[in-house]
């Protein structure tokens, strides 16, 4: 392993090696995460509904997604005649690429962040807007009313839920006194460290609900509600185009849960096991909650969705932010 790295550094130089290793690691993480999540989701769905889920291939059906991937790769990519070709082909890429950048920002351990950015938290949210453009590009260029309706819904839903997402994260930022993800973790660990789930339980609840809506997951999956809109914004996508949108969705789930684990659950903090293991465990615990929500609650109607965001979550997160600021000031003056 070390010998390999040395050879790489000899040929590419330190900078190139970092880029290559980071890229390969992220690509691996994205693929493995998506394959595991699809299997996991089907398994949990089975258990929730008193079924077994996939059982045929491998122990407990673990090889099922691998075979699904092979099938998907072999499928023909159909480009409908009336689409806006350039935008149509570009859309999955624009939706997916920000995920790569966002993954490299997560603090997998106290000393293991691929790119340490001063305002890392904001960068993650900023890139979220870019991927939303990708979704809408796909919806508009498809020249299909279901796709366009799905895209419209995705945009208005994301605008509505971005506010509580940011505001709940800001309450944690106030507690930690930094926008740097590594420093937010550091504020929760060490001698007097306390995971922010203790100080900010309300923010955690708001964050999880808003994150589920931001990733277009059930019960907030109205942008792709299959019973009304066929498949929403990706109706016209087949083969690899569809696969890339699919991959992007599961990667964003990993990212929002990674940020959730960083903000509220102490990142890689935990006894015995090494940091990255703890981090991954926490992320998949949050992902498990998201999967359970999907198979527990029915899909919201569009007006219910908007009411929840604008009339409940946003006021609540504003009050939470104000209360946090007031308490912090009180403590500061008192001490």
């Amino acid at each position: 392993m070390t010998a390999l790295l040395d050879t790489l550094e000899g040929t590419l130089g330190g900078w190139g090696t970092t880029l290559l290793v980071g890229f390969v690691a992220l690509a691996g993480l994205i693929t493995v995460n998506a394959m595991f999540m699809v299997w996991f989701e089907r398994k949990v769905a089975g258990w929730v509904q008193g079924r077994l889920g996939p059982m045929e291939h491998g122990p407990q059906g673990t090889l099922q997604t691998l075979l699904d991937v092979v099938k998907l790769l072999g499928k023909e990519s159909i480009i409908p005649a009336q689409v806006d070709r350039k935008v149509f082909l570009l859309a999955p890429v624009v939706a997916f690429l920000p995920a790569l950048a966002m993954l490299s920002l997560l603090p997998y351990d106290n000393n293991l962040t691929m790119t340490d950015v001063e305002s890392g938290l904001l960068l993650v949210f900023a890139f979220g807007g870019v991927s939303l453009m990708g979704i809408f590009m796909g919806a508009w260029s498809s020249n299909n009313k279901f796709a366009l309706l799905g895209g419209m819904r995705a945009v208005s839903q994301n605008i509505a839920y971005e506010l509580p997402l940011l505001l709940s994260a800001m309450a944690v930022v106030l507690c930690a006194g930094s926008l740097n993800l590594g420093e937010i973790v550091a504020a929760q660990t060490g001698e007097n460290g306390l995971w922010f789930i203790v100080m900010q339980p309300v923010a955690l609840g708001i964050y999880l609900i808003a994150a589920t809506a931001e990733t277009n997951r059930a019960p907030f999956d109205i942008p792709e509600a299959e019973s009304e809109l066929v498949a929403g914004f990706h109706t016209e996508y087949t083969g690899m185009g569809f696969a890339v949108f699919f991959l992007a969705e599961y990667t964003y789930m990993f990212i929002v849960c990674g940020i959730g684990a960083t903000l509220f659950l102490g990142g890689g903090d935990g006894p015995l096991l090494p940091g990255p293991v703890w981090f991954i465990l926490k992320v998949y615990f949050l992902l498990f909650l998201m999967v359970m929500a999907r198979w527990t609650y029915p899909r919201l109607r569009f007006d219910q969705l908007m009411n929840l965001a604008w009339k409940f979550l946003i006021p609540l997160s504003l009050i939470n932010l104000l209360a946090t600021a007031a308490v912090l000031k009180f403590v500061e003056v008192g001490s």
Binding site: V117, E118, S119, L122, L123, F125, A126, F127, G128, G129, V130, L132, M133, F136, W140, L148, M152, V155, N158, I159, E162, L179
Partner: peptide, 25 residues
């Protein structure tokens, strides 16, 4: 000016460009 750049992305791309999407409709 990293923070300014992020705010630019967040506001202009995440906010204004997305709001313009409604005009596209």
């Amino acid at each position: 000016a990293e923070f300014v750049a992020l705010m630019q992305l967040l506001i202009f791309l995440g906010g204004i460009a997305i709001a313009m999407v409604f005009a596209v409709m």
